[in-house]
């Protein structure tokens, strides 16, 4: 029943979800701090490796980074800075981590965005076709292939692609240094570099979209309202497009957004293999040190991506499904 309180309900719903996300983010901050500190490795020793250093010099370095303070005090300092928008300075590069993340963010968004859009489109299309022709050759073959790709290790697939198509595409990086600075040449060069990483990413993730779309459409296929639609005289593809697919899309949308957050994190492997200058590669390089401020910063950014995507999924679902809206 439409009630005058519906608007208030939505606002309250949003506030509840938002509050939940903020609490989750705080937990992530705490967890990130602890996690990287129990990890093996001493940043001061790694940085000074190969140089003759005295214990005094090490102590000075530790003092400079605040590593000599008790852990609780370190966390407090970190938290206060964080609330001011300061992620701290990188141990390796002595630069503000915030700037570094901003710089590396857009290559990652480009890679993950392109990959996800293609994977979602491919997965949904294949899943719909497979379900509509259940048990056909197409269904069996496409599901089998999707599963095979899904079970491949990302780095392995990436390296196979590099070996197989190495001559045609650049083996790493995002842009050649000698490319003319005009927009078109830069864009084309980036596109050229993007091909292999995107193919790898798509191949590994599209299967889940296909399988979810397939199973949720199969669930709708026996629904009575599809018989109603057929009885009305609708063509088969209209029955599918207008009635079956919109309903089957509902659970899929949630999954797409849930995974989008994880794809950002999952891109670490792809970026490492193809030396793509994004957040993933930066994280990968920081682990060896360990460059604590960088790790903590990227950890928060990746976790925030997951949280934001979850939030969007919740809100979108409520917007799309009238049944959820009423509850």
């Amino acid at each position: 029943m439409p009630s005058p309180r519906r608007g208030g309900g939505t606002a309250r719903y949003l506030l509840t979800k938002l509050g939940g996300a903020v609490i989750s983010l705080f937990m992530v901050v705490v967890l990130g701090f602890i996690l990287f500190r129990v990890m093996p490795g001493d940043p001061v020793k790694t940085m000074t490796r190969g140089h003759p250093v005295t214990n005094e010099q090490l102590a000075i370095l530790e003092h400079r980074y605040g590593l000599d303070k008790p852990k609780i005090a370190q966390f407090w300092d970190y938290l206060v800075k964080l609330l001011h928008g300061d992620f701290g300075d990188s141990y390796q590069y002595s630069r503000p981590v915030g700037d570094m993340i901003l710089e590396k963010l857009w290559p990652t968004v480009l890679l993950v965005g392109t990959g996800t859009i293609l994977a979602v489109a491919l997965g949904l299309w294949l899943g719909t076709r497979a379900a509509w022709q259940r048990n056909s050759v197409f269904d069996k073959a496409s599901t089998g292939i999707a599963l095979a790709f899904w079970s491949m290790p990302t780095f392995w697939l990436g390296m196979i692609l590099l070996t197989a198509a190495g001559g045609l595409f650049p083996s790493g990086g995002m842009v050649y240094p000698d490319t003319p600075p005009d927009f078109l040449s830069q864009a084309l060069d980036i596109l050229h570099h993007l091909v292999l990483p995107v193919i790898t990413l798509v191949a590994v993730v599209y299967a889940q979209y296909q399988l979810v779309m397939r199973s949720s459409l199969l669930e709708e296929m026996d629904a009575d309202y599809l018989t109603t639609a057929r009885a009305k005289g609708l063509r088969d593809d209209l029955v599918r497009r207008r009635h079956a697919v919109p309903n089957a899309l509902l659970p899929t949308v949630t999954l797409v957004f849930l995974h989008l957050g994880m794809v950002v994190a999952g891109a670490i492997t792809v970026e490492a293999v193809f030396s793509w200058p994004g957040l993933g590669q930066m994280t990968y390089n920081a682990i060896g040190v360990p460059d604590l401020p960088v790790l903590q910063g990227t950890f928060i950014v990746l976790a925030a991506a997951v949280l934001v995507m979850n939030l969007i999924a919740d809100v979108l679902y409520r917007f799309l499904d009238p049944r959820v809206r009423a509850v």
Binding site: D224, Y225, T227, T228, A229, A231, H243, N247
Partner: peptide, 17 residues
């Protein structure tokens, strides 16, 4: 157009969205 059906269980025979 010539013949139509009132289905059993209108709950499921209508598209929920």
């Amino acid at each position: 157009a010539s013949a139509s059906v009132v289905f059993q269980g209108a709950m499921h025979a209508l598209n929920p969205v």
